[in-house]
C-alpha cells in the first residue's frame, strides 16, 4: 500500500507534465512572445507559491502558539506592540516589492510581444465559420495568393498577421508561438509572431463562434527560409492541369457543379470565394480545418456528405454520382 502511494506520487505529476509538451501547448513554447509569456507565468506562479507558503506558515504558527485561551481584553506589552508594527510594515513593504516587481516584469514581457523589425512578412488571416482564409502578398500583384487553414512562415523572421473576422468574432491562437488575438468583424487587429524553431504548430479558434467552433483548427508550419521560399513559389503557381482522363473528368465535374461557385482553383474558371481556395488543396496536410488528413479517401468522404461530418458548416451536400465523386476527389487530391 505504501509503495503504491509512493508510486502514485511519482507517476501522477509525470503524467500531468507529459501533457505539457506537444504541438499545441503554451508550456512548450517556440515563439519569441510565447517564450517570454511562459517565463513570465512561471515566475509569477513561483513567487506566488512562495508567498502563499510563507503566509500559511505564519498563520499556522500563530494559531499554534496561541492555542491556550487568554482573558479578554488582550493588552499587548509595549515590546510586542513594536514587533507588531514592524511586522505589518515589513508585510506591506514586501507586498509593494512583489507587485511592482511583477508590474516591471510584465511590462518587459508585453514589450517583447510587440517585436518589430523591417524584414517583416505580412500575412492576412480571415476567420470564417468555420475555417481560416490565409492571404499572402508579394512585390507584384500576381504574386498575391490565397490558401486556407495552413500557414507557412520562415523561422527567425518577424511575421505580421493582419487579422479580420468576416462573420462573427473568432480568435487566433497558436499556444506554442504566441498569445491569443481576436478577429473582430470591421476591425483590423494585428499580431506579430516569430518562430524560433522549425516545426509544425497547431492553432485553434479560441473564441466560441458557433456550432463547429471546436473544428476550427489550423497549422502554422515554421520552416527554414529556403524551404519557405520553395513553398511560396509553388503556391503562387496556378493549379496543375489534369494529366489523365479520370482527372480531367473530375475537373469537368468540379466546374459544372456548384463547386465552382464557392471555390477557386486558379488556372480554371472556378473563382468562387465562399469556400477555401482549392488550387493546391492536395499539398495541405488537413482538410476541413483540421478534421481529416488530406487523402483521396478523406476528400471523397468530405465531398460526399460534409453535413454529417461537420454539421452546420457552410458547404452543402452536392448530389454527385459515384463516378463523379471518385473523379472529383482524385482531381482534388492531385492538386499538389
Amino acid at each position: 500500500m505504501r509503495r503504491a502511494t509512493r508510486l502514485a506520487w511519482v507517476v501522477t505529476p509525470a503524467v500531468l507534465l507529459a501533457g505539457c509538451d506537444g504541438w499545441q501547448s503554451a508550456l512548450d513554447a517556440h515563439g519569441t512572445s510565447a517564450v517570454s509569456l511562459k517565463q513570465l507565468i512561471i515566475l509569477i506562479v513561483a513567487v506566488c507559491s512562495v508567498v502563499w507558503m510563507l503566509v500559511m506558515i505564519a498563520l499556522i504558527m500563530a494559531l499554534w502558539r496561541n492555542r491556550r485561551e487568554r482573558p479578554l481584553p488582550v493588552t499587548p506589552q509595549p515590546s510586542t506592540q513594536r514587533r507588531m508594527t514592524a511586522t505589518v510594515i515589513a508585510a506591506v513593504a514586501a507586498t509593494t516589492v512583489v507587485i511592482s516587481g511583477f508590474t516591471i516584469m510584465s511590462f518587459f514581457a508585453t514589450r517583447a510581444l510587440g517585436i518589430g523589425g523591417n524584414d517583416e512578412l505580412t500575412i492576412k488571416v480571415r476567420g470564417l465559420q468555420w475555417w481560416w482564409s490565409v492571404e499572402y502578398f508579394g512585390a507584384r500583384s500576381e504574386e498575391r495568393f490565397e490558401t486556407a487553414n495552413e500557414i507557412h512562415i520562415p523561422v527567425g523572421r518577424n511575421v505580421r498577421f493582419k487579422l479580420e473576422g468576416l462573420d462573427v468574432i473568432h480568435s487566433f491562437w497558436v499556444p506554442s508561438l504566441a498569445g491569443k488575438q481576436d478577429l473582430v468583424p470591421g476591425r483590423a487587429n494585428e499580431l506579430i509572431i516569430r518562430a524560433e524553431k522549425p516545426g509544425i504548430y497547431r492553432g485553434q479558434c479560441a473564441e466560441f463562434c458557433g456550432m463547429q467552433h471546436a473544428h476550427m483548427a489550423f497549422l502554422v508550419i515554421a520552416e527554414s527560409p529556403d524551404e519557405f521560399d520553395k513553398w511560396i513559389n509553388a503556391q503562387r503557381q496556378p493549379a496543375v492541369q489534369p494529366s489523365e482522363e479520370e482527372l480531367a473528368g473530375g475537373q469537368r465535374t468540379f466546374l459544372e457543379k456548384p463547386c465552382a461557385a464557392c471555390h477557386t482553383v486558379r488556372g480554371t474558371a472556378a473563382s468562387g470565394t465562399t469556400g477555401p481556395d482549392l488550387t493546391h488543396v492536395g499539398s495541405r496536410k488537413y482538410i476541413a480545418a483540421g478534421l481529416f488528413e488530406t487523402t483521396r479517401g478523406s476528400l471523397a468522404a468530405w465531398i460526399a456528405d460534409p453535413q454529417t461530418i461537420k454539421p452546420g458548416n457552410n458547404m452543402p451536400m452536392v448530389p454527385l454520382t459515384p463516378e463523379e465523386l471518385r473523379a472529383v476527389s482524385a482531381y482534388l487530391a492531385s492538386l499538389k
Binding site: E256, K257, P258, A260, A261, P316, M317, V318, P319
Partner: peptide
Amino acid sequence: RDKMTTDQ
C-alpha cells in the same frame, strides 16, 4: 441551377 443545390 448549376451553381447551387436545390436546398439552397
